[in-house]
C-alpha cells in the first residue's frame, strides 16, 4: 500500500483534472464567456451613455464575472455528480480539503481568464483610456477577487451538488456572501483603470480587503467542505 498523497498534491491533481475536462469540453470558453460578453453588450443598451458606461465599467465587469461564477460553479459540480465522481473520490478516501482547494483553484483559473476577457471587452466596448501604471494593481486585484469568488462558489456549489432545486438556490446563497468581493474588486479596478477619478495608489487598500476575503473563504471552505459534501 502506498501512502495517500498530501493535501497539496491532491489539490493539484483535482485542479489539473478539472482544467483538463474544461480544455476538452470547452464549456466555459464556448458557452460562459459568450454569455458574459453579450451581457456586457446589454449593459450598453441599458445605460445608453458612453461616458456613464466608462465610469460604470469596473462594476459591470465584476457583476458579469459574478453572474458567470454562478454558472461555472454549477458546472464544476455538474461534472462531479453526473457519474458519481464525487462519491467515488470520497469512497477512495481522498482528503476533502484537497478536493475543495483543487476545485476552487480550477474555478479561480477559469474565472481569471473570464475576467481578463471582460476587462478587454470593457476597454474596447466602453472606450476606456487606462493609465499605464495600473496594470499591476489590475492583475493583483483580479487574482485576489477571483480566488475569493471561487472559494465561496465552491463551498456552496459543493453543498448543493446533487440536490434538486440547486439551480435556483445557488444564486441566493452565493450573491450576498460575495458582496464584499464585488465592492472591493470594483473599487480596485476603478483605480487601476482610472474611471472613478481616483489615483492608482488608492486601489491598494481594496486589494487588502480582497485578500482577506479570499483567505477567509478558503479557510472556512477547507474547514467545512467535508461536512458539506458528506452524505
Amino acid at each position: 500500500m502506498s501512502t495517500p498523497p498530501g493535501v497539496v498534491a491532491t489539490a493539484r491533481m483535482i485542479a489539473a483534472r478539472d482544467l483538463r475536462i474544461e480544455w476538452r469540453a470547452r464549456v466555459v470558453m464556448n458557452q460562459v464567456i459568450p454569455f458574459a460578453a453579450v451581457t456586457m453588450v446589454l449593459f450598453a443598451f441599458a445605460v445608453d451613455d458612453t461616458g456613464a458606461l466608462g465610469r460604470l465599467a469596473p462594476g459591470l465587469v465584476w457583476l458579469t464575472v459574478m453572474f458567470s461564477l454562478l454558472l461555472c460553479a454549477q458546472r464544476a459540480f455538474a461534472i462531479e455528480s453526473a457519474d458519481g465522481a464525487l462519491e467515488a473520490l470520497r469512497v477512495a478516501g481522498v482528503d476533502p480539503v484537497g478536493i475543495f482547494l483543487g476545485k476552487a483553484a480550477a474555478l479561480a483559473v477559469q474565472l481569471l481568464a473570464l475576467a481578463a476577457v471582460m476587462v478587454l471587452a470593457a476597454l474596447i466596448l466602453y472606450d476606456l483610456d487606462p493609465p499605464a501604471g495600473g496594470v499591476v494593481l489590475l492583475v493583483t486585484s483580479a487574482i485576489c477577487a477571483t480566488c475569493a469568488l471561487a472559494a465561496t462558489g465552491t463551498i456552496y456549489a459543493g453543498l448543493a451538488a446533487g440536490v434538486s432545486g440547486r439551480e435556483t438556490l445557488l444564486p441566493l446563497l452565493v450573491v450576498p456572501v460575495v458582496s464584499p468581493v464585488l465592492i472591493g474588486a470594483t473599487r480596485a479596478v476603478e483605480a487601476a483603470l482610472g474611471t472613478g477619478g481616483t489615483a492608482v495608489a488608492d486601489g491598494w487598500p481594496w486589494v487588502g480587503l480582497l485578500a482577506v476575503v479570499a483567505v477567509a473563504s478558503a479557510v472556512v471552505g477547507a474547514l467545512t467542505f467535508g461536512s458539506a459534501i458528506r452524505d
Binding site: 463551498i155 446563497l173 456572501v177 472556512v220 467545512t224 458539506a228 458528506r230
Partner: peptide, 10 residues
C-alpha cells in the same frame, strides 16, 4: 450538516 455550514459561513 449542510445548514450548519451555511450558518457558519453566514
Amino acid at each position: 450538516r449542510r445548514s450548519a455550514v451555511v450558518g457558519v459561513v453566514a
